[in-house]
Every structure is written in structure tokens, then in C-alpha cells.
Amino acid sequence: MPSINSVSFDTSKWEAIEQLDDRIIWKNDTADRLSLHFFPIPPDLPAPITNLTKLRNFYRQNVIQAGGGIISIDIVSVKNVSAIKTIFKFPMKSTGMRYIGSLTFPFANFSYVIKIDCPESGMTGVRDSLVHALVIKDFDPKDPFKGWFEDPYDKTRQDAVMWSKSDDEKYDSQFPDHPLSRARKYLTEIPTNLEFTNEVLRAKPF
């Protein structure tokens, strides 16, 4: 059976703060957290990784029950291994949002999850306010927030926490220090040097 040490990636910019048999957690100087999780049991996913619609519904339900909302859920390939790439957001107790990004690698009898946790700090809501000012001309002047929030995959939904226009990836370059921009950057950087042992690569897929 593979182990937590069967996956590696560049953590030179991170400081390890916890290391157990099933997880390793790092932090950096922006209060972000990076973690690697190993689950030595069959994944509890409700559908094959090719059934993206069912997986999106599954993740949406779980995130909503936890008080959050979905930003994106996609299937990607990392070193020829299929993964579920997700980004969620959760309101923080005081103000602002916490953005959780993950790469989940499911196999038949185990799985790995690389998780990024990026909280909003300082003056919150700046990205939302500035982007809204840019696009307000596209909205009904009688209801300037109509259409601002929506589900990225089901426009008929109305949930408590939802994707907003300011969450669009095209604005990341204008707000590189925003936690959502940081989360997306990490999820792009990590796969570039991610390595699996041959034991993992030969394992039966999910």
C-alpha cells in the first residue's frame, strides 16, 4: 500500500508545522496553509471521475451543508493521473471569506488530497467592490446586484453562498494578493513538480 510519502512536490517556500502518517501541514508567511492528506480506504465519491455532473452535484451539496459555496469543480490530469480540482469559499466568523482549493487524486483503494487554505485578512471586500464598479453598467440600475451571484454550473440555483462575478479568474492578475488569486496560483504551481512513486502510478484507478 502506498503511503503519505508516495507523493512529493516543492514545499521549499513553506514551513512544516505537522507531520503524521495520514497528513502533513505547512504554513507560509501569508497565513495560508498547505496540506497533503492520505486516505488508505476506497474513496467515497458517488460516481466515476468521468461523471463530472454527478461529482459537481455531490460536492455542491456537501459544501452548502458546511455553509460554503462553490467557485469551480473540474477534472484535470496531473502527470497522467486524473484529479478533481475544486475551489470553494466559506464566510469567516468576523468578516471576509476563506478560500479552500484542492486536488483530489482518487484510486480504487486509496486517495490523496492536496489542499490549500487561504483566508482573507486586512480590509476585506475590496476585490468585490472594485469589480462591481467596473461591471455595474451591465446590470439593471433598479437592481445593481441582480445576476452578481450565481452558481457556475446551474443558473437556476439560489444558495446562501455563491460564486460572484468578482470570483472570475480573469480578475486574478489585478488582485494578485487576494486569497482567491493565491489559491488558484498554488493549484497551478503544485502540479508542475508533483511526483508519484511507481507504486502509486501502478495502482488500480478509481
Results as ranks from 00 to 15, higher is better:
51 N>S: 03
51 N>L: 02
51 N>P: 00
52 L>N: 08
52 L>Y: 02
52 L>A: 11
53 T>S: 08
53 T>V: 14
53 T>M: 06
54 K>A: 12
54 K>I: 07
54 K>F: 03
55 L>Q: 10
56 R>F: 10
56 R>Q: 15
56 R>W: 04
58 F>K: 05
59 Y>L: 12
60 R>W: 04
61 Q>L: 11
61 Q>P: 05
61 Q>H: 10
61 Q>E: 14
62 N>I: 09
62 N>M: 14
62 N>Y: 07
62 N>D: 10
63 V>R: 01
63 V>F: 02
63 V>G: 08
63 V>T: 13
64 I>Q: 09
64 I>R: 13
65 Q>V: 03
66 A>G: 07
66 A>W: 03
66 A>D: 14
67 G>F: 09
67 G>K: 07
68 G>R: 05
68 G>H: 10
68 G>V: 09
68 G>F: 04
70 I>H: 01
70 I>R: 00
70 I>D: 00
70 I>E: 05
70 I>C: 12
71 I>D: 02
71 I>R: 00
74 D>L: 04
75 I>C: 15
75 I>S: 12
75 I>A: 06
76 V>L: 10
76 V>N: 05
77 S>E: 15
78 V>P: 02
78 V>T: 04
79 K>D: 15
79 K>I: 07
80 N>K: 09
80 N>S: 14
80 N>Q: 14
81 V>N: 05
82 S>K: 12
82 S>V: 12
83 A>S: 15
83 A>V: 02
84 I>P: 05
85 K>E: 09
86 T>S: 08
87 I>A: 04
88 F>Y: 14
88 F>S: 09
88 F>D: 10
89 K>V: 06
89 K>F: 11
90 F>L: 15
91 P>I: 10
91 P>T: 13
93 K>T: 15
93 K>G: 03
94 S>T: 12
94 S>A: 11
95 T>C: 09
96 G>F: 01
98 R>G: 04
98 R>Q: 06
99 Y>P: 00
99 Y>W: 07
99 Y>S: 01
99 Y>G: 00
99 Y>E: 01
100 I>P: 00
100 I>Y: 02
100 I>W: 00
100 I>K: 00
